[in-house]
Structure formats: structure tokens, C-alpha cells
Amino acid sequence: PQLADQKTLAKQIHEAYLKNFNMNKSKARTILTGKTSTPPFVIHDMETLQLAEQTLVAKMVGSSAALLNKDAEVRIFHCCQCTSVETVTELTEFAKSVPGFSNLDLNDQVTLLKYGVHEAFFAMLASCMNKDGLLVAYGNGFITREFLKSLRRPFGEMMEPKFQFAMKFNSLELDDSDLALFVAAIICCGDRPGLVNVPHIERMQESIVNVLHLHLKSNHPDNGFLFPKLLQKLVDLRQLVTEHAQLIQEIKKTEDTSLHPLLQEIYRDMY
């Protein structure tokens, strides 16, 4: 009976993941390996960026007059924020579908999201990346790693650590069923600062991590070290988010750009 319960939990979490996220690894890989009828538009310099802004991005985030006068770096940063905000809302709905999450103290739910969403975001972003670039605008665009790297300081430093993480993470060859459980494990984490009902969350975390372990054994029978490797990725993601939050603080201080209110409340008093 316990095994049946664990399989049910894995299935529920996988279904919640497929239902709530617009992009997933299977869709992203289909596009990145050229198996779609229309390939993504490649953004590799200022000219192709402008072309993309007139078509793909205009559809995605609208074109605000205030942004038109800003330099490319600030406009790209604005698009990154829109994607982050959309992913945070998707992650919130996903979390609510994870059995037990909605029964947690509401303030604890907020804390789990505050600390978990960026770790989960960067883990899922890896699905949209290959060594040369990143899928953007719902898979309709592909922005090259070199172009992102060439942006002026501090914007040029923003994505490179995520690419470096993604290349190692992608070598683990997880599929969407594995990622769904991994993302749930990131969110249901009992050691986030300020949690009130730690035992309740730890019990949830334990059942999700057990299910992840079991699922990896059956889904990747030839890779016995996958589970401990993934536990290490949880540590790496925390470091990645800490560095990202520091960069955001620097941008806030030195650049003439605004931070979305949802992101402001997530980053405020974070680490």
C-alpha cells in the first residue's frame, strides 16, 4: 500500500507540473533539436534584438513608451523580469496542487515560495538552454549565450552562471516526470528562514524526497548515483540564487530601472 501511495503522489505531482507550466523540457527539447516546423527566431545582436522586440516581445509584454528610450540591457532585463513573474505565478499554482501544501500555515506557504521560486525557476530554465543559448518568448525566440555575455556590466554577468549550472544539470538527463518531483522538493523545504511549523513541512519534504528517490531508481535504473547528485544540485541552486539576489541588489542601486513589485517582495530581506 505504501508503494501505491508513493506512485500516486509522483503521478499527481507530474500532472500538476504539466498542467501549470507553459513550457516544459519535452517541448523545449523538441524546439531546440529542430523538430518543429518553424524554428525560433535567433537573437544574436542589437539588430536581431530590435526585430524580435517588434514582433515576439511586443506580443509577450506589450511595448511601453518608457522602455523604448532605455538601452538594450535595460529592455532585456525588463523581459527577464516578465518571465520571472510569470514563472512565479505558475510555480504558485503548481505548489498549491502539491498534496498537503495548501494545508500548511499561510505564512509558511509564503515563506516556501519566497525562498523556493528562484531555485525552481533556474532548475527549470536549464530545460530551455543548450550550450549556445536560451529559448525565450514561449519558445518563439532563441537568444544566444554570446550575445547575453556581450551586454555591458552588470547585465552581461547575469546569465552566464545559469548557463554553467544548466550544462552540468542537463548532463543528468532528467525528464519532466523527474523534474516535477525535483521542483516539488525544492519548494517543500523545511529549512527556509522564518518557517513556523517546521515539523509539518519536514514530513511533506520527506515524503516528496522519498518518492523522488524511488522514481529515479525506476526511471534511471542504470544511474545509481543520480539521487545524491540531485541532492547536491539543491545546494548549488541555493548558491546560484544567493549570487543572483546580490546582482539584483546591485542593479537596483546603480541602474535606472524598476523592479517588479512581486520580485521586490521576494528579494526584500531574503538573504
Partner: peptide, 20 residues
């Protein structure tokens, strides 16, 4: 609660979109 009002709202009401 005031510090995280958008997260609270998203958790309690899924049909309220966040402006981009």
C-alpha cells in the same frame, strides 16, 4: 503579511493575474 501581499494574493486567489 503586508510585506508579501502579492504572494498572499496569488496563494489565496488564483484568478487574479499579476500585471507585467
Amino acid at each position: 503579511k503586508e510585506k508579501h501581499k502579492i504572494l498572499h494574493r496569488l496563494l489565496q486567489n488564483s484568478s487574479s493575474p499579476v500585471d507585467l
